[in-house]
Every structure is written in structure tokens, then in C-alpha cells.
Amino acid sequence: MKKFMNYLRVAVVALTISMAMSGCSSSDDPAPAPTYNVSLVNESDAALDVDPAALSEQIIKIQTDAPLTDLSIQKVTEQSWCIATVKSTSEIAVTAGANTSTADRVAKFKLLAGSSVLEFSVTQAGANPQNVTLSIESEQLQEYSGMYSYMGQNDKAVVKVKVTTNASRWHATATAMMGNDADFVITKARGKSGEEMEFYLQPSMSEMLAGTITITAGDQSVDITVNQMTMNGATMFKLFSDENKTKAFANKTTLNFAATFDKDDTTEHIKTFYVTTDGGYVTLVCKAGTDTEVEGDAAWLTAGGNLDALRISATSNTTGAERKLDVVIVDSDNWSELFRIPVVQAAK
């Protein structure tokens, strides 16, 4: 009987310890880290390439639904020259010391958002030699006595220019003298020796484009003078109310605006149409039924477009009376009328 009681006591103690350990284990296990959405705003930031000079701060834009407390940076490669920190739920800040070596160096990081991971890297170019050399070549450029030029044809042709240099990197910038900087689109603006700089020009509907693309490596630079004449005036112009261009908006169809607008709803006071045309055009705002352009306080309507879209916007009508104007599309050569949109805005 005593043996049985001893066995019973041992069994009870063992069961109690087991239950205690089980309870302790389940309560002490950390909760799994939450999973969040996290991504880069610009995919190119996944592999940053920076100059050899010290980098005071470069911002990487991110998108995430994680709170700031669940965001952190982890080094993948052990190094001390590059630091990445979470600045906010939308920004990572990257700094780097100067690279005095002629070799490139790479720092790799992980952005942790709970259990979600986003990897990115920073490559810093090696230091440039003392005497930098730079040359370019392209069958698409005209070259005369070391000066380069390009004449665009309004066809968005991509121009490729091979760059040769003993510098660690070259980079290209555009400056417009006529037109806008945005008309000069550099699609490959940075690279190593032997790689190609790439650019194209936006088609020019109503003004000549002129400017310079400058390729720089170290203290050396080469300029490419760029020109593009305006395209011929349009002989055909069509509008559509949808981006797929399946819903035609007919010539002389009236466009109606409300008297006032919800300040948070731009679709109420800005109407967007999609364009099909074979040339350049100019947008005018005229008195209803005439070719007379309006100015000053009478110009409550604005309109403008490009080869892709036409946008018309109105201000709120506080006059107490209905008002009318016409948006008139004319060709860019002879200013002959191609299309007319009567616009009516209701009274308040």
C-alpha cells in the first residue's frame, strides 16, 4: 500500500510539473511578427548607384502599411561606410562616406516590416583618376571638329550614344533653350565606360525644341546640341472620352460644367479627353460661336493638350447667370479650325 501511495505521489508531482512546464511554454512563446505590404516607389532604388564623393543623404521612397515601430534596417554585408535608416513610413535615408579607392564597393541591406523583408543595395563608384578622359560616338549624331549635334524628326526615336571614359561613372543632363526640360527625355542618364547614354525628344506640336545634352565624367564634359522643328499642322483631329478610345466625342458636342465644384473632386472642374491626330494643333478659348479669343476676367475656361490628351477646366461660376465659351482646335500651321467644343456652365 505504501509503495502504491508513493507511486501515486510521484505521478501527481510529475503531472503537475508537466502541466506547469506546458503552461509556461505556451505563454512565453513570442507572438509571430505581423506581415505587412512593403515595396519601393521606384524600382531602380533597389540597386542605388552613387558617386565616389561623400553622400550626405539620399532618400529612398517606400510604400508600406506597417507602423513606424515595426520598421527597421538590417545590414546584410558588414561594413561601416554606408548607413541606412528608417526616416518615416515612406522614406529611408542613405548616407555614405567618400570612396578613396578606385574600386567600387557595395553595401547590402534589408528593410524589415514585421516578418516582411525588402532588400536593397548601395553601390558606390570608385574614385576617379587624376587625368580623366571622355569621348562619345554615335551614328545618329552629326560631328564636326569635335562638336556634336542631333536633329529630331518628331518620331520619338531613341538616340544611343556610346560613352568611353577612364572615370568610374559618367552622367548626362538636359537643358532646354526652347521648349521645356521635360521635352528632352534621358532614359539612360548614368553608366560606366562602354555603356550607352540614351535619350529621345517628345514630339513638338507648336514650338521648336532646342537645347543641350551634357555628358560629364569627372572634370570633363561633352555637349550635344539638340534641335527639333515643329511637326506639320494637323489635318485630322478626333476626341474620345475614354483612354481606350472606344467612346468618340463628336465635333461640336456641348460640354457642360456645374456652377460650383467639390474642392476634393478634380473630375468636376477638369474634363479630360483623349486625342487622335496626325499633326500639330493649337487650343484656343473663344467667345461662343466665334473665333475671337477671350482674355482677362472673361477667360473662366482654360484648355490645353498634347498628342495624347486634351484637358478643359473651369472656375466656379458666381455671376448668377449661365455662361458660355467655345474651345476651338486649330492646326498649328494655318490655324484652320479642326474641332469645336461649345462649353456651357450653369448658374449658381
Rank of each mutant, 00 (worst) to 15 (best):
G305C: 08
Y144Q: 12
K324L: 09
A288C: 04
I62H: 09
L55F: 08
G218A: 05
A113I: 02
E243C: 07
S22Q: 08
S316G: 14
S26G: 00
A11L: 13
T225N: 12
S336V: 13
A176V: 02
V158N: 07
T302N: 12
L112V: 11
A298Y: 03
N232I: 10
T100E: 11
V285H: 05
T272H: 00
T123P: 00
S101D: 15
A20F: 14
N42K: 08
G233Y: 03
S18A: 15
P342R: 03
E322D: 06
Q202H: 10
S56Y: 07
L310Q: 08
M19C: 14
C24R: 04
D65Y: 09
K2R: 14
V38I: 15
G179Y: 02
L48K: 07
D333G: 04
N334S: 11
A309G: 01
G320Y: 04
N232Q: 12
M178S: 10
S145D: 15
I136T: 03
F199D: 02
T165V: 03
R323L: 05
S25I: 15
N99W: 00
T212H: 03
P52H: 13
V275I: 15
A54S: 12
T254Y: 01
L307P: 00
N317H: 01
M1G: 15
K252R: 11
Q74M: 09
S90P: 00
A20N: 05
K247W: 00
S221K: 13
V132T: 13
N227S: 12
D265V: 05
V106P: 00
L255K: 00
